[in-house]
Structures are given as C-alpha cells and as structure tokens.
C-alpha cells in the first residue's frame, strides 16, 4: 500500500510541475461541459415543430420521457445524448499520461533505479494507473456538478432537470466513468510498457482508445434504449474487461525486456 501511495504522490507532484498536462487535464473537460450546457440553453429557447417530434419518435418511446410535453422532451432528450460526452471526457488525457508513464521513465533513465527498489510490478502499475485516472475521474464529476447547476437554471421544468439525476445518469457517472477511465489507462499502460518511443506511445494510446470507445459508446447509443439495465450491464462488462486488462498489464510488463530492449 505504501509503495502505491509513494508512486501516486510522485506522479502527481510531477503532474503539477508539468503545466501543460495539468491544464489539459482540467480545461479539456470544462470545455467539453460547455457543449451540453449550451445545448440545454438553446433547446430550452427553441420552438419545437412537428417534424422534429416525428424524427424523435423512437426516443420518445423511452419511458424516461413519459408524461413530458414536447418542449420538455426535446430539451431533455437532446441533453441526454450529451451523456456520451461525459463518458468520453475522462479518457483523452489519462490515456496519454498512461501511455507516457513507463516508456517516458525508460527514456529519462529513471526506470532502472526505480525497478531496483523493492516494489512489485503490481504496485508500480497500480500506482501509475490510479495516478493517471483519479484526477480525470474527479474532474469529470466536478464537470457533471457544473452541468447540473446550469441544468437547474436552464431546464424548462423540474421534470427535465430530474432526467439528469435519474438512475441512468448516476450509474453512468459513478460506475461507467471510473470503469471506462481505468480501461483507457490500462490500455495506455500496456502500450507504454511495450513501446520504445514516448511520442509514438501517446499517439498509439489515443488511436487505440478512441475507436474502442466509439465502438463501445456507439453500440450503446445504437440501443438508445438508454435504460438503467443497459447501463448496469455495460458497467459489468467494462468492469470485467478492466480486471482482465489490469492482469494483462502486469503479465505483459517484462522488467528485463523493458530495460534492455533498446541499446
């Protein structure tokens, strides 16, 4: 435990000293939050016409919107699609941090003395994963709260506001956000411990994670049933994948290969 704690402390101090990463970590989610907030605002103002309503027919079948007026449904439904944005929010920066974390220390030569200390691979990788994911998760939650504050202000009715704190959103925020972040970070760590160039690792991290997420979220959006069960089920699947990825990360971390691969 103490070892993990030390690694997290080191990573965070380093992050604070690395202003660019810090700004990206905080600003990117905040900028992304502006989008649903703006959508909420304009949907609240926009007149709703019949054609729109027909196009949204399928959405409206969702029991979530039961009993809502067309205007309420419109605002609520459009803002709800932005849930996807909150799920993407904590992925981009952590995956690059994770992708840098091992190969970066290798090229800075700090990996060898680190591996000479009595730290297990699991401790090292857990420390690095938590350090990369926790800030992003917390910032995403913070952005969610910011979104809720604006939703309180801009929602045309309590019913609309309530859709943003319904069980589906809460599961997404409290379960899916952390689980997806851990998934992205684990993939990043695996890439990092198998690659030779930090920049390539970062790019590969982004390249691998985005299609993965797009696939995931796309399928989910395709169901667009957007109900609690779907989210719980997805969370369970992602949790299983996470466990597998963390194990794979430790198994694929070959100390000797990492230290001696490039000469």
């Amino acid at each position: 435990m103490k070892q993990i704690h030390t690694i997290i402390g080191k990573e965070w101090t380093d992050m604070v000293h690395n202003k660019l990463v810090l700004y990206l970590l905080i600003l990117l989610p905040l900028l992304m939050t502006a989008l649903p907030v703006a959508l909420l605002y304009f949907m609240g103002k926009a007149p709703v016409n019949q054609q729109d309503m027909e196009e949204m027919g399928r959405l409206l079948a969702n029991p979530i919107f039961g009993g809502m007026s067309p205007a309420e449904t419109m605002q609520s439904a459009m803002a709800s699609t932005m849930l996807i944005l909150f799920l993407m929010m904590p992925l981009a920066v952590p995956v690059t941090i994770a992708a840098y974390s091992i190969v970066g220390e290798k090229v800075e030569h700090s990996l060898e003395p680190l591996l000479a200390t009595p730290i297990t691979t699991t401790q090292l990788l857990l420390g690095k994963s938590i350090a990369a994911s926790a800030p992003a998760i917390v910032i995403t939650w913070f952005c969610y709260v910011v979104f809720l504050i604006f939703a309180r202000l801009f929602s045309v009715s309590d019913r609309v506001f309530n859709t943003f704190v319904n069980p589906m959103w809460l599961i997404a925020m409290l379960l899916l956000v952390p689980l997806l972040t851990i998934m992205a970070v684990s993939v990043g760590i695996i890439i990092s411990s198998r690659s030779t160039d930090p920049r390539a690792a970062e790019q590969l991290g982004a390249l691998v994670v985005f299609p993965l997420m797009a696939f995931f979220l796309g399928t989910m959006a395709g169901f667009i049933l957007l109900n609690t069960t779907t989210f719980l089920l997805t969370s369970a699947i992602v949790a299983l994948l996470d466990v597998g990825l963390v194990y794979a990360g430790v198994a694929l971390f070959q100390r000797e290969t990492i230290l001696t691969r490039w000469k």
Binding site: T6, D14, H109, S110, E112, A116, P118
Partner: peptide, 28 residues
C-alpha cells in the same frame, strides 16, 4: 542492495529532496 546506475536517472522536474524522499519511502 543500493545501486548507482550508469545514468543517474533522477526526476528532473522534482526537487533534490523529493527525489530522495520518494526513494526513502520506496525502500521503507
């Protein structure tokens, strides 16, 4: 064992003191 590796491999963005504190903790 203690090891001085071929290249020092310090954490350049961290202070001298922090560099040592991290290792002191890792070594218990």
């Amino acid at each position: 064992v203690g090891i001085l590796t071929e290249t020092p491999g310090l954490y350049e963005r961290l202070s001298a003191r922090l560099n040592l504190e991290i290792y002191a903790k890792l070594y218990g």
